[in-house]
Design a protein around this nucleic acid. Structure first.
Lengths: 141, 141
DNA sequence: TATAGAGGTTCCAGCGGGTGGAAGGTCAAT
DNA sequence: ATTGACCTTCCACCCGCTGGAACCTCTATA
């Protein structure tokens, strides 16, 4: 099938599918007209990628997962390790976002939000806050 | 002061400070030797940026915040709106991450994690899961 | 005064993960 | 024969920096 159909079946935009080929995640054949021809196996790979990406795995992790997938002798513990690492990463992000939210919420609550110029949010950003919110902000990597 | 000192005082790397100049967020003077010279006001702006970025505002939002900061007649409601928008955005992200985590955790739990090849994570990614986890995964934008 | 080292400058390239658009080739239906 | 949908390649851009090369300038010491 052509790229359009592969796109429909995988829910990946054609551009993305071509990009995945460029970075050697998938290698469809070519028809005599130069069109890419996707086998069911290719579509399968693409769907695998679509899911893994949707789960937050990076491209490189996806590459690893694919190779594990294709390795009949791989240990399922390898895959589990990758998954639990990812879970921890997600947990870290959630924590970071929660702390950010707290800070912003505290600021917003102190802001009367009318059409007068006094604004504790701005004051805090400018480093002249009189609201009791501490800002030892670590850079959001 | 030179860029190194400005860097120390703002906790922003020199590269970042130069970048902020390139995108016109700050405009230090130049000494006769071509070195950038940062006034206290510049450092103040940079610190403002450092905090706003740390709170998850994008560069463009920072630009807006700065202009609001410098507008004596701005309405504090404008700033509050920006902050509450950001809070909602953070909330959305947290929700998305939580659902991701749930999915991954369910998979990892079903994975025995030994050195035998059966692996429900891989099976699920490959779309042949027999674990009861549903995957109408929306692409993580 | 020569020199070393720390700091400054510019410019170019790359990260991840695509996305947009232009210019052109191909196919099926009218 | 023409339209329009689909396909191709290529190049540039998004964000927010970051790394590195090549070079300039300042200060301290031998």
């Amino acid at each position: 099938m052509n790229i359009g159909q592969a796109s429909e079946r995988t829910k990946l935009p054609p551009k993305t599918i071509r990009y995945y080929e460029e970075i050697a995640l998938v290698a469809p054949e070519r028809g005599p007209n130069g069109y890419r021809r996707y086998s069911d196996k290719d579509v399968h790979r693409l769907r695998f990628l679509q899911r893994a990406r949707g789960l937050g795995f990076t491209i490189e992790e996806c590459r690893l997962l694919l190779s594990l997938y294709e390795d009949q002798h791989r240990a399922s513990s390898d895959v589990k390790a990758l998954a639990t690492d990812k879970i921890q990463e997600i947990d870290r992000k959630i924590k970071e976002l929660n702390s950010l939210k707290k800070t912003l919420a505290a600021l917003a609550q102190n802001c009367h939000g009318d059409d007068k110029p006094d604004c504790p949010i701005i004051d805090d950003l400018a480093g002249m806050a009189d609201v009791p919110v501490s800002f030892a902000q670590k850079s959001a990597k």
